[in-house]
Computed example of a mutant assay.
Amino acid sequence: MSTRPAFNEYLPLAEKYVSLVPEGHIAEVLGRQHDETLRSLSDLSEEQANVRYAEGKWSLKQVVGHIADVERLWNYRILYIARGDAREFSGYDREIFVQNSPFSHLPLQEALKDYAAVRQSTITLVGSLTEEALKRLGTFNNYPLSARAAAYVIAGHELHHMSILREKYLT
């Protein structure tokens, strides 16, 4: 699937993520991201992984865990929509998720292993879907949501956070 989702396939707030995704087949984009993220973060020390750039901000490990958890949620939405079980999907509270996640206590390599497993699942799921399945619609926060738009949100969400990591954590 190399066709970008149309604006009427996702909620307006998602545009900030969808617009970040480069052209190309979305499963391939997700695969390249996986490789680049692991290259960028695998050699960091635990001390670097525990850094918070400001009071009340997440550590780098928590950001990695957040990326994986959010991807899990979007995969759930993709699966339901692609299989034709359209429904209304709700949001979640990211602060509660991070607060109750194990990522601050895990070694960085374990957090990256979790990220890699989730991403491989995403690539397999998205790569297996037909054009018809990718275009199917559900509803998210009272807006239409296609399976392909959800895949683009996953990719854009990671690009957003990797940009922050490079700017604020890896300088």
Rank of each mutant, 00 (worst) to 15 (best):
M1S: 15
M1T: 13
M1G: 14
S2H: 13
S2R: 14
R4M: 09
P5C: 11
E9A: 09
L11H: 13
A14P: 05
E15F: 12
E15T: 14
Y17K: 04
V18D: 08
S19G: 09
S19V: 15
L20R: 14
L20Y: 05
L20N: 07
P22A: 10
E23P: 04
I26Q: 06
A27F: 03
A27T: 10
V29R: 03
R32H: 12
R32C: 07
H34Q: 14
H34A: 11
E36V: 05
T37F: 11
L38F: 00
R39D: 14
R39A: 15
S40C: 11
L41K: 02
S42E: 11
S45C: 03
S45V: 02
S45T: 13
E46L: 01
E46N: 04
E47W: 00
E47K: 04
N50M: 09
N50V: 02
V51K: 10
V51L: 10
A54V: 08
E55D: 12
K57F: 00
K57S: 05
K57T: 07
W58M: 08
S59K: 09
K61W: 02
K61E: 04
Q62A: 10
V63K: 03
V63G: 07
V64S: 02
V64A: 07
H66Q: 04
H66L: 01
H66E: 05
A68N: 00
A68Q: 01
D69M: 03
D69L: 04
V70K: 04
V70N: 13
E71G: 06
L73G: 11
W74L: 15
N75D: 07
N75M: 12
N75I: 10
L79P: 07
L79W: 13
Y80C: 15
A82G: 11
R83P: 11
R83K: 13
D85S: 12
A86F: 07
E88C: 07
E88L: 12
F89V: 07
S90E: 14
Y92S: 09
E95R: 08
N100V: 04
N100Y: 00
H105L: 13
P107N: 03
L108Q: 01
Q109E: 15
Q109G: 10
E110G: 03
A111Y: 01
A111P: 03
D114N: 12
D114V: 13
Y115V: 02
A116Q: 05
A117V: 14
V118Y: 00
V118R: 01
S121P: 06
I123R: 05
L125G: 10
G127Q: 08
G127Y: 06
T130I: 06
T130K: 02
E131L: 11
E132R: 09
A133C: 09
A133F: 01
K135C: 13
K135A: 15
L137R: 14
G138A: 08
G138R: 00
T139N: 11
N141I: 10
Y143W: 13
Y143P: 02
L145N: 01
S146M: 06
R148W: 09
R148P: 07
R148S: 15
A150K: 04
A150R: 03
A151C: 10
Y152W: 12
I154D: 10
E158S: 12
L159W: 01
L159S: 06
L159F: 05
H161M: 03
I164Q: 02
R166Q: 10
R166E: 06
E167F: 00
E167V: 00
K168P: 01
